[in-house]
Amino acid sequence: MKKNDIILIAVLLAAALLTAVGMRIWQMNNTRDAAKVVVTIDGQVYGTYPLDEDRTERIELPDGSYNILTISDGYADVTEASCPDQICVKHNHIKYSKESIVCLPNKVVVTVEGGEDSEIDGATF
């Protein structure tokens, strides 16, 4: 290992840590009581559900594959899915604004939207 390698590794890890902390602070400050869970399939909005109401929603795709979204105690979680990799099921539950659970095989994205003013989020369209 050269000195440059160690500098590179240190810079990468520091940058990762700073962005992670910065994003978490932003997320915590931008999550209000009226947070919603937005489900999109292939970029199209499938449904919007309030984060403070417990429910279980079966997200059904035209080809028969599915993801099961469970909202409880103010957290959203994908608890079951038909996808082969199960990455979405393994993902931690989410509650902060802009946190998301992604299922690449099903093209399903579950995102928490912060509060009143993120009603129309241009980026999701």
Binding site: I9, L13, T40, S100, A123
Partner: peptide, 27 residues
């Protein structure tokens, strides 16, 4: 590519974790 396919910018939030994982496996 995943961001382009899913048309969502939310994946950007995984970047720090991906950098850390990439660094460890790279070493």
């Amino acid at each position: 590519v995943a961001m382009l396919v899913l048309e969502t910018e939310s994946l950007l939030y995984y970047l720090p974790f991906l950098i850390v994982i990439g660094t460890i496996t790279g070493v």
